[in-house]
Design a protein around this nucleic acid. Structure first.
Lengths: 226, 226
DNA sequence: ACCTGAACACCGTTCAAGT
DNA sequence: ACCTGAACACCGTTCAAGT
């Protein structure tokens, strides 16, 4: 930037893959998935659509890069002196938070489960599972179970947040949803109609933590009685 | 059809919401998500695009209807004389199979988690969880954990199947994937590079069942020592 | 009530042409 | 090497007009 290089960085607004990714994230966050068009991207970056294609191969490629970027920034290494269990909660929280903040990530990850972004999360979880002493033959399964739990709940939360944005305020929203569930046909939805009354007091974050506890309890139980 | 009704069913090809949904499923299965356009739908049904819009509100609406239809057909009631645990495996298998057969469902469910199709699965699982004797305050959490596990693994499997279709045959595919994982930077992906050797012998279906066992083991463990 | 198909306002992507 | 912007082959959706 302010190095001795003369005109190597001609303008601060020189187009780059990085700047395109950043602009794309911004559009996705503010306008949603449908707002991200190559033309909108070009307009925001004050360039032509062809320039976008020179830096990125493809719109699909851009979406993959954008997802990897956001997830990569969120899932950082864990601080040293914590227990594996604490680290696990920390990682899961990071993932939960990043999806809550960028609701479009969920659909993106579901489309291509083994993309780099997913692998990063999977690896972070796996390390801690190993540190926890889970036997090698179970590590893959436990890591996957945790990954699915985090992703599933985060998508659920993101969808809820999206609905709250569209409709009324957060407090009444769960009540309305509960009312809708209660009005379902009990012979068709016996469980949902019954459990609807629990919905108003529901907390996604608490459920998220409870689920991790559940899976970890399963691990210990299976280790004691295999 | 061959009833006494005279011309009440003028032609067998009279357009209807049902026929549109069926055609859409067919296109999604054979051509993929990108192949499903209103024009392609109209051409296959030998009609104009306007006719499609008269029966369905919207392409989003069509996708929701299509998803509900496929999931609804797959998740049927469970036969009477089985244990809740067996029923749980049966339901989870139905969901797994339907996503494996129609890979596009995964992304569709992730986009809108509380749509009717999802609620049906959630309810079926919940009933059996209740039958299993899980305490009321845990039922919601356990049902969600199972739902997320099934959906996550099914998406993973569907993506794998998609890749197998594109690239080589299934047997070599896992080996190639393992090789790719092994070539990753071990300091960046310590867990994945380490576990890569397990991949060739990996069986999605076995992992799917192991995950359910893990969650159920967690339930019993937490009930004994809450 | 149900269907037709042209028309509108968009898309992603390419590519000759510029600097 | 990097960028421009017109052009191509599509989209979803609407709507006057038909039956």
């Amino acid at each position: 930037m302010t190095t001795t290089g003369r005109r190597t960085t001609r303008r601060t607004d020189a187009l780059s893959r990085e700047r395109i990714v950043d602009a794309a994230i911004d559009i996705l966050d503010t306008e949603g998935e449908r707002g991200l068009t190559v033309r909108a991207l070009a307009a925001r970056l004050a360039t032509g659509s062809g320039a976008i294609y020179w830096h990125i191969g493809d719109k699909d490629g851009l979406l993959a890069a954008v997802t990897a970027d956001v997830v990569g920034r969120a899932v950082t290494g864990v601080a040293g002196s914590v227990t594996p269990r604490e680290a696990l909660f920390a990682i899961a929280s990071e993932v939960f938070d990043v999806i809550a903040a960028h609701p479009w990530i969920g659909a993106q990850l579901a489309r291509e489960p083994w993309q780099p972004a997913m692998l990063r999360i999977f690896d972070s979880l796996g390390e801690q599972i190993r540190a926890l002493g889970v036997p090698p033959e179970s590590q893959f399964n436990v890591a996957t179970a945790l990954l699915n739990h985090v992703l599933g709940l985060a998508c659920q939360y993101a969808a809820g947040a999206r609905l709250v944005l569209q409709h009324g305020d957060p407090s009444t929203f769960l009540g309305e949803q509960a009312a809708r569930w209660e009005q379902l046909n009990p012979s068709e939805y016996p469980f949902v109609t019954d459990i609807a009354s629990q919905l108003p007091g529901h907390d996604d974050r608490a459920q998220f933590i409870a689920g991790i506890d559940l899976i970890l309890a399963g691990v210990t139980a299976q280790r004691q009685a295999p």
